[in-house]
Amino acid sequence: MYSPKYLISNKILKTVGSIEASKEIIENAPLVPSFEKQFQSDAMIRTIHHGTHIEGNDLTLYQTKKVLEGAEVYARARDIQEVVNYRDVAKLLDELAVKRGGYDPDMLKDVHRATVDRIVVPDKIGVFRTTEVVIKEEGTGRVIFSPPPSHEVPYLLEDFFAWLNDAEARESHPIIRAGIAHYILVTIHPFVEGNGRTVRAFASLI
Rank of each mutant, 00 (worst) to 15 (best):
E152K: 09
V192S: 09
H151S: 11
I19H: 03
K14E: 13
H49P: 01
K99E: 11
K37Y: 02
R46M: 10
A71V: 11
E132I: 00
N28E: 11
K11E: 13
E168Q: 15
T60A: 02
T130N: 11
Y2E: 09
E138F: 11
P154F: 06
T198F: 00
K124F: 14
R76V: 10
N28F: 06
K99F: 12
G70T: 06
H182R: 08
L205M: 05
I125L: 07
E69H: 02
E36C: 04
V186L: 11
S146Q: 11
D104K: 10
V199N: 05
K5P: 01
L96C: 08
Y183G: 00
D159E: 09
G126D: 06
F128T: 03
T60P: 02
L61E: 10
K11L: 14
S172E: 15
E132P: 04
K124E: 12
I26G: 07
K136F: 05
H151I: 13
V121I: 13
E24V: 15
I45E: 08
S204T: 13
D88W: 00
L59M: 06
Q81N: 04
W163Q: 06
I119S: 03
K65M: 05
H53R: 13
A114T: 02
V84S: 10
K11Y: 11
K23G: 03
S150L: 08
E158L: 13
H112D: 01
K14F: 15
A75S: 07
I19P: 03
G102Y: 15
D166I: 08
A29W: 03
R100D: 06
H50T: 14
E27F: 07
P30Y: 00
I175F: 12
T130I: 10
G139T: 02
L157P: 04
V116K: 09
D42Y: 09
P190Y: 10
Q40E: 15
L61R: 02
R197P: 00
P190S: 09
M107N: 09
E193N: 01
G102H: 15
R142Q: 14
F35W: 12
S22N: 03
V32C: 07
R197A: 01
P105H: 08
V32M: 10
H173V: 00
H49F: 14
D58C: 13
E171N: 10
L164Y: 09
S18R: 14
H173M: 05
I19D: 01
R200Y: 03
V98I: 15
S9G: 07
D110Q: 14
K11W: 06
D79W: 06
K99T: 09
T140S: 13
D110L: 15
A97D: 14
A203Y: 00
H50V: 10
I12H: 11
V120T: 05
T60R: 04
F161R: 07
I180D: 01
K91P: 01
Q81I: 07
P148M: 08
P190R: 08
N195H: 04
L108D: 12
T64A: 04
L59A: 07
A114D: 02
V116Q: 06
I26C: 07
Y6E: 11
K66D: 08
I144P: 00
G70R: 08
I119H: 04
H53P: 00
I8T: 13
I54S: 01
A201W: 01
K99P: 00
P149T: 06
G70S: 02
D104I: 05
T115P: 03
I26M: 14
Q81C: 03
